[in-house]
Computed example of a mutant assay.
Amino acid sequence: MILEIVSPEAKLFSAEVTSVTLPGVNGSFQILNNHAPIVSILGKGLVKIDAPSFKFSKEVASKFSKVNDHTYTLAIESGTIEMKDNKVIVLAD
């Protein structure tokens, strides 16, 4: 599935991913390939991204923390998520 993470300043990430774990307002939840359509509000926490490979622009690389070769995290204050047609869009603050 495709994951896009956008902040008010810039597009932070856009790539094919295996899964994404998000900090929902009622607890964390995970989205996998072919997940049902969903729209949700996000709370403060970590967005955990699992992917076969990662490429970040120099401007945004410092916002991400490496967990291992296939996992990175991004701290957010709040946001929204939409999953539709195997594409996840995260609008993050």
Results as ranks from 00 to 15, higher is better:
1 M>Q: 02
2 I>W: 09
2 I>F: 09
3 L>F: 04
4 E>L: 03
5 I>A: 05
5 I>Y: 00
7 S>D: 02
9 E>Y: 01
10 A>K: 02
12 L>E: 02
12 L>Q: 01
12 L>M: 10
13 F>Q: 02
14 S>W: 02
15 A>V: 05
15 A>L: 01
16 E>Q: 11
17 V>N: 07
18 T>L: 13
20 V>G: 03
21 T>L: 08
21 T>Q: 12
22 L>Q: 03
24 G>V: 09
25 V>W: 00
27 G>S: 04
27 G>A: 03
27 G>M: 04
27 G>W: 08
30 Q>H: 00
30 Q>D: 14
30 Q>K: 15
31 I>D: 02
31 I>L: 15
32 L>I: 11
33 N>I: 09
34 N>T: 09
36 A>M: 04
36 A>Y: 03
37 P>K: 06
37 P>T: 03
39 V>K: 11
39 V>A: 15
39 V>Y: 12
40 S>H: 07
41 I>M: 14
41 I>Y: 10
41 I>E: 14
42 L>C: 08
42 L>D: 10
42 L>K: 07
43 G>E: 10
44 K>H: 09
46 L>S: 14
46 L>R: 13
47 V>L: 09
47 V>W: 06
48 K>D: 08
48 K>A: 12
50 D>M: 11
51 A>E: 07
51 A>S: 15
52 P>H: 00
52 P>G: 07
52 P>N: 07
53 S>I: 05
54 F>G: 04
57 S>W: 02
58 K>C: 04
58 K>N: 12
60 V>W: 06
61 A>P: 08
62 S>I: 04
63 K>A: 05
66 K>V: 13
68 N>W: 06
69 D>E: 15
69 D>H: 05
69 D>C: 06
69 D>N: 15
69 D>W: 06
69 D>R: 10
71 T>P: 02
71 T>I: 11
73 T>P: 02
74 L>A: 07
75 A>K: 14
76 I>K: 06
77 E>C: 03
77 E>T: 04
80 T>A: 14
81 I>T: 15
83 M>K: 10
83 M>V: 15
83 M>F: 13
85 D>I: 00
86 N>F: 03
88 V>N: 04
89 I>A: 07
89 I>E: 06
90 V>S: 01
93 D>H: 08
93 D>P: 08
